[in-house]
Design a protein around this nucleic acid. Structure first.
Length: 578
DNA sequence: GCCGTTTTCGGCCCGACTGTTTTCAGTCG
């Protein structure tokens, strides 16, 4: 039973309670508890075992009991009662844009609609119009929304969302009267995927901005258009919201629309306790007098807190940390001195030469670069002899190229199905950096995958475990394994876990980073570059690390080249320190 | 259902926009 499964039961209970018109605050309680469980860095079962569930925010004794039931049996009594009343298909209707709990209740109770197909039938037969407050415009909108729901493939990866956001912001910044234009929302929090774009404009004259926004070249449909707020959908399917605010409100708005929702509720509740009111327009006192709001810092100052970086604003303890003066000093891209997982054209899938990689890394100000091509079991991977020759070539090149990063001779060695490594230990031991990764048998049972990784860690010749979960966002699920057991082994041997910065990997996740930090396991942020232009992608890894509360000291490649192996407790490192 | 430096009861963040209405409910963020 994974955290996500427990969370799903709670999410569904919230939705079912909402559809049957239950207490809205109870609905919110279910949802908040679900979100907490869903984003928990460690397994919820562990907290349950230690009877510490009620220590979590938004989890009281009642929900803690339900979580216990769910962990033991996969469900709970109240869930079963709700599920007996509300058909599951009804919950899916809530995911249709423009369809909320009231509409769902109406079509279900009055028309007998219990799933998406039923809703489409009701539209086609004209029965949907019988529902109160349902006119032709809404019926058409719902029909279109169903089509989009069926077609859409989920959230957009961060790197693509950033690309579109920058394009739109660039155009809006040229509109007369625009003082500032920024992206907020999950994009600003640097979540790995983004559902829609939230853009904010500071201007005294909203009119021209709204006109420019609605007439952007790739707008497919204008969904809403008001004086200060508009929504459009781009041809690629991305939903974009735009708000225009006066400059004196911009900071408050930036804070509010950056979220997350849980963070906002927590900080507004805190404001209420202090006799203040927060809105996207500013900070107000009891009489409604505006106190501040031009800068985002104003909002935090008003509630007695230091500014909190957007990546931390998930409602997972950042307010408490800020209050205690214990916010982490988050790692920055500038802190990274090198890159320890890079492929050259010597391995089958690398496309850039040593010189190209070196030149690109020099431009990025890197001090070192480990060339880590694939081992022999990968197609065209390197046999021991070829690898040793390659290492010689890398070291020679490093001497020859002057005034740039040092090139380190490394390898990305396969962890074979039995957990052994794809190259002899003496060959691996002669290299400057060894990344060990799983590239095959992803479907092994979890204990086998775990055992493979642990065995690799215990080999004494491995510096880091590459892309630990093997996931490809939107394409391949992570393989199941026991991260805690891997972290235990990694700590014991001083082996690092990789945070692979490729935008479709981002593996470790933010939650995994937090666990690694708690376990005292170093993290290495790598590009896994297969072409020289990939070297700049490290920033995506930095954002995940920041979301995982990591500081400079937690990251291996913030150290100079001479100190990379100082936390390793394997044989090779001991040899080296002699 | 959660929560507490006014509270263990009685609150629970706040506002814009739309479509359907003659004043507002529903949805969204």
């Amino acid at each position: 039973m994974e955290n996500a499964d427990v969370a799903q039961v709670l999410y569904d209970m919230g939705a079912m309670t909402e559809v049957i018109g239950g207490n809205p605050f109870k609905v919110r309680a279910f949802r908040q508890a679900a979100e907490v469980i869903d984003t928990l860095p460690g397994p919820v079962s562990e907290l349950w075992r230690k009877d510490e569930l009620t220590g979590l925010p938004s989890v009281g004794t009642r929900i803690a009991d339900k979580i216990g039931e769910i962990l033991e049996s996969g469900t709970c009594e109240e869930y079963e009662e709700l599920a007996a009343e509300v058909p599951m298909g009804v919950l899916e209707l809530l995911r249709i844009e423009g369809v909320g709990p009231k509409t769902v209740a109406s079509v279900w109770k009055e028309l007998g609609v219990t799933d998406l197909d039923g809703l489409e039938d009701a539209i086609d037969s004209g029965r949907l119009k019988e529902v109160p407050r349902m006119g032709p415009v809404r019926v058409r909108a719902i029909r279109k929304a169903i089509g989009r729901y069926r077609a859409r493939g989920g959230r957009m990866p961060l790197h693509r969302a950033l690309y579109y956001a920058e394009g739109i912001l660039g155009r809006l910044r040229r509109v007369p009267g625009v003082i500032r234009a920024e992206a907020a929302g999950s994009l600003r929090r640097r979540r790995e995927t983004v559902g829609d774009l939230d853009l904010l404009i500071a201007s005294e004259r909203p009119g021209p901005v709204m006109r420019a926004f609605a007439s952007l070249p790739d707008v497919d449909e204008v969904i809403a258009r008001g004086d200060t707020k508009s929504s459009v959908r781009l041809e690629i399917g991305l939903h974009v919201d735009l708000r225009v605010l006066p400059p004196e409100s911009f900071g408050a708005a930036l804070h509010y629309f950056t979220g997350s929702k849980n963070h906002n509720i927590a900080i507004r509740t805190r404001a209420v306790r202090l006799g203040l009111k927060l809105s996207e327009y500013g900070v107000f006192d009891r009489e409604g007098n505006r106190l501040s709001g031009e800068r985002e810092e104003d909002v935090f100052e008003a509630v007695g807190l230091p500014w909190i970086p957007p990546e931390l604003r998930e409602g997972t303890g950042e307010l408490e940390a800020a209050e205690a003066g214990k916010l982490p000093h988050l790692v920055t891209e500038e802190d990274l001195l090198g890159d320890l997982h890079v492929h050259s054209d010597t391995s089958s899938d690398g496309r850039s030469s040593l010189q190209d990689l070196w030149r690109e890394a020099k431009g990025l100000g890197r001090q070192y670069l480990a060339i880590t091509d694939h081992s022999r079991s990968r197609p065209l991977g390197l046999e021991p002899k070829a690898l040793l020759a390659h290492a010689k070539e890398i070291r020679a090149a490093s001497k020859k190229f002057q005034g740039g990063p040092k090139l380190l001779a490394g390898v990305e060695v396969d962890i074979l199905p039995d957990g052994s490594l794809d190259l002899p230990a003496d060959v691996l031991g002669s290299l400057d950096w060894v990344v060990a990764s799983i590239h095959t048998h992803f479907d092994d049972p979890p204990d086998r995958i775990t055992a493979r990784m642990v065995k690799a860690i215990e080999s004494g010749v491995v510096d880091a475990i590459g892309h630990p979960s093997g996931r490809l966002i939107g394409k391949r699920d992570p393989y199941s394994y026991d991260l805690e057991a891997v972290l235990d082994a990694a700590r014991a041997h001083g082996v690092a876990l990789e945070l692979n910065a490729m935008p479709d990997r981002l593996d470790l996740t933010d939650g995994g980073c937090r666990l690694a930090k708690e376990a005292g396991v170093p993290v290495v942020i790598d590009s896994d570059a297969h072409v020289s232009s990939h070297l700049s992608l490290l920033r995506f890894g930095v954002w995940v690390a920041r979301r995982g509360w990591l500081e400079k000291e937690d990251i291996v490649n913030t150290r100079p080249a001479s100190r990379l192996r100082e936390t390793r407790r394997g044989e090779a490192a001991r040899e080296e320190r002699k």
